[in-house]
Amino acid sequence: MQNLTNDLQGQLPIEFLIVVGITVILLFPLIMCLMDSNELNQAMSASRAGALQGALHDGLAIYPDDTYRDYIIKHPRLVNPSGVKITKIDYSNQGFNPSYQKTKIQLRVHASAPSGIDKSDRNCLGDRINYYARKKICESFRTQNLTNSVYNPAFSTHYVFTTVDVCWE
């Protein structure tokens, strides 16, 4: 009869190996799924921070030099401060885009502005909000080198982001 106290050859029970194997098989796709969700979550958070920044620039009416010169002639109303607020940001998944080899996400920012601002001025305000939303996504994923000067489209690792005109409420 074998002396159990001297059994140092250490065999793992088959049940334990089966449990570990199944756990690994289940965890792998779960981790992949979580990584994708986390990436989208990070991108949405970055776009929100960017849209907020754009709205604050619009609200405080502090613009880059060339934009200021343009506005003082074409959109003098925008040189004054105004109350621009971001109310909501949503997105639609437009599926896999073969051109970019990434999943395409379209962002839509909802914002509110004073009623005295006309459509042309609102377009300018909205363009700035969208610009900063895309810019922040690129900065968050360090993909500035993959896109153009207006960050359109913005890239993350597995997604490509575009924006539509801001929906004014």
Binding site: L60, A61, I62, Y63, P64, D65, I72
Partner: peptide
């Protein structure tokens, strides 16, 4: 004018 950005008060 601050860091290439401008703000104007009429």
């Amino acid at each position: 004018i601050i860091r290439g950005r401008c703000g104007y008060s009429f």
